[in-house]
Design a protein around this nucleic acid. Structure first.
Lengths: 195, 195
DNA sequence: CATATATACTCCACAAATGGAATATGAGAG
DNA sequence: CTCTCATATTCCATTTGTGGAGTATATATG
């Protein structure tokens, strides 16, 4: 379980309703851990049941009542314990890159288009990270340093993608691959090759 | 469904059993799309049922018979179609980065240790990618260019991590954060703050 | 006056992924 | 001679995540 910890991080900042946590995910934590509101509400129920937070219903007029969760000492302890566990880097999970392993069986023009699309997307995302990062750069609190560092991973990641896509497009340009010899020409034109 | 396509990429290279595909995932495709053997076997069953591959039982003595799957024209067409769909970049999903959003509530020493651990892990992975990449660098076939490009994403990724972790360690060194003022000192020492 | 948006939560069917156990045997290491 | 490793597949309980529908009201937009 891991969404649990992401929610506890959100609650560590201060008491929050499910709605608040979902917003928090949208604007910050979600850069590195996405979750839908349905998932968040479900998980917050479990967090309450296991005593990592307590819930308090706050009446509101008109709108449905807020159910505000406050992290308990057990919750804080769970966060500390979690941060002490060794953290394994996540896997890269990107089917687009898998396409490159089957590059002879796919539509190269479509691949080029997707590379161009990605350049735009990653540029946009990079800009988004940079805006968030700029807002923090004058600060010298530990909390903001943490956010800065996280955002910098995002910025680097997006920058690398833009750069890589650009270079890939050059190396996959029709002129570049025109004279390419298929050194190991397995499986051409539907011919079967027995293993 | 996406594992389906990753498996079709594996089959596009030549006929394979579930075991072969699982191995292929371990040594190449799995860098960018992990799957357990149980998942692969199940998905290959579906691929057969939907006519994207045909299965043939190859008797063996001693060991269980191999069930060898060969991609059909429909399967090849599915690959082409898939490559024509717009591909959205994957989300970054890394709880370690989420910890930075709750940096005031976690164990900073443990965080530093995890940063050091990551440096090692990413260096190892980078070396692994580089070995695979070196094996291909003399080749000038399209298939190998595809693999090279994919591996280069991996190499860049790992390099960035090593670099970022190193710099993060400097900025989070005890001396560096000693005089740090909590500009917005919400939620200290268990004090509640009303919204 | 209608419609969209923001607030706030509950519930559910479904898909996908995890992490094994179970079955069966040959080959090589110690 | 035992034990582990590699081969090869099936099956399943459980967790996690997706993608909504449904309930309810205030405020702003056109």
């Amino acid at each position: 379980m891991s969404l649990k910890h992401a929610i506890l991080v959100a609650l560590s900042e201060g008491p929050k309703s499910g709605y608040d946590v979902a917003k928090k995910f949208d604007e910050s934590i979600g850069f590195f851990w996405r979750a839908r509101h349905s998932q968040i509400y479900r998980e917050m129920g479990k967090i309450k049941e296991t005593g990592l937070a307590v819930a308090e219903e706050v009446p509101q007029s008109g709108k449905p009542n807020r159910i505000v969760f406050t992290i308990t000492d057990e919750g804080k302890e769970a966060l500390l314990q979690w941060s002490r566990e060794p953290s394994d880097p996540p896997e890269m999970k990107d089917l687009f890159l898998v396409q490159f392993y089957g590059i002879e069986s796919i539509d190269l023009d479509a691949l080029r288009q997707n590379l161009m699309r990605r350049i735009e997307t990653h540029q946009d995302r990079q800009a988004e990270y940079e805006v968030k990062h700029k807002l923090l750069e004058d600060s010298s609190s530990l909390a903001d340093l943490g956010q800065q560092l996280a955002l910098e991973v995002g910025m680097r990641w997006e920058y690398q993608w833009v750069d890589w896509c650009t270079k890939a497009l050059e190396r996959l340009a029709p002129e570049a691959i025109a004279g390419m010899t298929n050194v190991v020409p397995f499986q051409q034109e539907g011919k079967k090759n027995a293993e």
